[in-house]
Amino acid sequence: MTHDESVLLAVDDVCKDYPDGNVRALDHVSFEIHSGEYVAIMGPSGSGKSTLLSILGTLDRPTSGKVIFEGNVVDSSTDLDELRSRAIGFIFQSFYLLPTLTALENVQVPMFGRGMTGAQRIEKARELINAVGMSEREKHLPKQLSVGQRQRIAIARSLANDPRLLLADEPTGNLDTVTAAGILELFDELHDDRKMTLVTVTHSEEVALAAQRVLRVRDGRIESDEINKTLQSS
């Protein structure tokens, strides 16, 4: 792959084998994600999509092949903690909010160690909480929030360090239909207003079709790579 400056993330001939060597989770996968794209990775359980997301987020390493972020190969010399902290935001299906911290405090957690004062952290956290429509819930603990509200706070937290890449793992998997629709609308706003590069992993056709582009994964391979024609024509 030659480097194109518009490419934020590239996956080049990536394979991932489980430790026992009997199962190949990813099989010679290659694709590029451009800055500002909204991409869905879709596939059934066991297709390799969650493994792929972990590799995109540098939470796991490929057995072979390369992951290239902003033109630099992610390898054993890369400071992965620093890369994730400054450039990659994660939204998990289980939220992982700290139960003893308020919504405002949870959103501040990634900001510690970034050279910000307490007042700066609070100001930025409030801005993010307001952006996800949760300003009236900033003093609430996670147990005092609905599932959808917790997801919104988790999204605000994922934006704390202004990531260039936002990764979401089954972001509507625990949500009812109405709440899930609200989260997808929020993703649209993040993509349109903040020009976020957004990658979501899902088994839901509805969630996938909210994206500009859909990568369909089956048996560890990219089965298809399609532009969302509905969005393109709207």
Rank of each mutant, 00 (worst) to 15 (best):
L145N: 07
R157L: 02
M116G: 00
A131H: 11
A125G: 06
I155V: 15
A181K: 15
L97I: 12
L97Q: 07
D193I: 07
D193V: 12
N174D: 09
G133Y: 10
L165M: 12
G113C: 07
G115C: 02
A131N: 09
L190T: 11
S135H: 10
F187Y: 12
A154F: 13
L165R: 12
G118F: 01
M196G: 00
H191S: 06
L190F: 05
A181H: 15
K124A: 05
L141M: 12
G118I: 03
G182M: 14
A125E: 03
I122A: 02
F187S: 02
N130Q: 14
K195W: 00
D192Q: 11
D193L: 03
S94D: 14
K143A: 13
E138M: 14
L145I: 08
M134T: 09
Q120L: 01
R137I: 03
L190N: 09
H203K: 07
Q108F: 01
R114T: 08
R194N: 11
P142E: 11
Q108W: 05
H140C: 13
L128Y: 13
T197M: 02
P110R: 01
H203T: 08
F112P: 04
P163F: 07
S135P: 02
E189G: 05
G173C: 07
R157D: 04
F112C: 01
T200A: 10
E136I: 05
A125Y: 03
E189R: 15
I155S: 01
